[in-house]
């Protein structure tokens, strides 16, 4: 059933800009870094000395986090927006599918698209490093960590944005919340550790990266459960 829900969601985003948006994030981040390195190659190489990979990851990471934050809000809004635009919630929920499957299908679509984004970013980062002629001794663990741990740490926000976007016909509020979240996340250095807006950043740079990702996973599941409980009880108009 999970597979069937996902296949339906994928069918619905045919000819939509959703795929392009998911690709745009990583391509934009790496594109900007390409310009950055193109213009300031000597400066940046000197700055990071004998660990050019680490430098690249740091540079990429600083752009990746805001892109992830706003990207997840946009993806969640657009995937739920398909149903709002089609007036299809009533049709969908009058079919022999459970509300859990409908809710789960939407969340999984967003999770899948964002996972694809993170993977594309990993590949592009790798490609860029190799093109710049960095040491072929690629720091795999570092690259994989940076690509996927922030994704896990951002799970509470994926859950929140999916929930808001699904239950609200007006997408202005969820997207405004998403935008504020993105800007807030830029001040993660000033935040106490319990604030989730700082977790994706912690998942990139700090020693407690795994803890940040784990907390994200746990809180994300919790928010999903709350969101689902709300959706399951809601009358559909």
């Amino acid at each position: 059933m999970i597979g069937r829900m996902l296949s339906v969601e994928l069918l619905k985003i045919r000819r939509k800009l959703l795929w392009m948006l998911a690709a745009l994030g990583p391509v934009g981040v790496i594109g900007l870094q390409a310009v950055n390195y193109g213009l300031r190659y000597d400066y940046l190489m000197k700055l990071y000395g004998d660990s050019p990979w680490e430098g690249l990851l740091q540079q990429v990471g600083s752009l990746m986090l805001p892109a992830l934050f706003i990207g997840l809000a946009l993806v969640a809004s657009m995937s739920a927006g398909i149903e709002h635009q089609a007036g299809a919630w009533k049709q969908l929920l009058a079919l022999p599918v459970t509300r859990l499957q409908v809710f789960g299908g939407k969340v999984m679509l967003s999770l899948l698209l964002l996972l694809a984004s993170c993977t594309l970013l990993l590949l592009l980062t790798l490609g860029m490093g190799l093109l710049l002629g960095f040491d072929p001794q690629v720091p795999w663990a570092e690259i994989v960590r940076q690509s996927y741990l922030p994704y896990l740490a951002a799970l509470p926000f994926i859950a929140l944005q999916s929930w808001l976007s699904i239950v609200m016909a007006n997408q202005a509020l969820p997207l405004t919340v998403g935008t504020l979240g993105m800007v807030l996340s830029m001040f993660s250095l000033l935040m106490p550790a319990w604030m989730p807006w700082g977790w994706p950043d912690r998942a990139v740079r700090s020693a407690d990266a795994l803890q940040a990702a784990g907390s994200g996973l746990a809180l994300g599941v919790l928010v999903l459960l709350i969101g689902y409980a709300h959706f399951a009880r809601k009358d559909v108009s």
Binding site: N36, L39, L63, I70, S77, M78, G81
Partner: peptide
């Protein structure tokens, strides 16, 4: 029509600020 599309346009142009602001040129 959608709220997301103009926002995406805005973000695409605004995020580069983080790099551009450093560049004198």
């Amino acid at each position: 029509q959608s709220f997301a599309a103009p926002l995406a346009v805005n973000v695409v142009f605004t995020l580069p600020n983080m790099l551009v602001a450093n560049s004198r040129d």
